[in-house]
């Protein structure tokens, strides 16, 4: 066995908390090799020191309230994961509010376009004004579409968050 192979075998023994020459044939051979090889003996000394020091690292036990809180939060998350009752009603209410606000939003966009057209009428060619108006309306439509499309997601997220933190 080469020193590399021996040291890898010794590493494996250390990671299995088996740093004694009584394992399988490969382990026994590795310990025998380390007994007569300075480099491998040094590696074995390091592994024994490592094993002793790692085992001596104190570790505070988890506190009972931490476990209890973890369990409560997990239980709430488990319940929240179930199909939420009343989701349709809540979604309908959110959509109704959004739809009620839509005429105002559209009217405001229309006024922006009209005012812009009026302000620029004297010194910007019509083709450019039409292009600007079209660009504004297109981005407005995209924004409104994304906003309305996100309503079901926001309602679902809000319901889950409320249930988990209730």
């Amino acid at each position: 066995m080469s020193c590399d192979a021996v040291q890898q075998q010794l590493d494996a023994c250390a990671l299995e908390h088996a740093l004694a020459p009584d394992g399988d044939a490969a382990a026994v051979e590795s310990f025998a090799h380390a007994a007569s090889c300075e480099a491998c003996a040094a590696h074995l000394a390091f592994l024994r020191a490592l094993d002793a020091e790692l085992a001596a690292i104190p570790l505070a036990a988890v506190r009972a309230p931490v476990v209890a809180t973890a369990q409560q939060r997990a239980t709430r998350a488990l319940r929240a994961r179930e199909r939420p009752r009343g989701f349709g009603r809540e979604l309908a209410a959110a959509l109704a509010v959004a739809v009620l606000a839509l005429p105002l939003v559209v009217a405001q966009a229309f006024m922006v376009v009209e005012s812009g057209a009026w302000l620029l009428a004297g010194w910007v060619p019509e083709a450019i004004r039409v292009w600007l108006g079209f660009g504004y309306l297109a981005s407005f439509a995209l924004g409104v579409g994304a906003l309305y499309g996100s309503i079901p997601l926001v309602v679902a997220w809000r319901r889950r968050a409320l249930r988990e933190w209730a």
Binding site: L59, V62, Q71, A74
Partner: peptide, 27 residues
């Protein structure tokens, strides 16, 4: 919790992450 304490080196972090772990398990 012991794993998280050893990996993060901080017991309070381990407390928080333990809770997050179980929430993720439930989800």
């Amino acid at each position: 919790h012991a794993f998280l304490t050893r990996v993060t080196g901080d017991r309070d972090d381990a407390d928080d992450l333990l809770q997050d772990t179980w929430v993720r398990v439930a989800r």
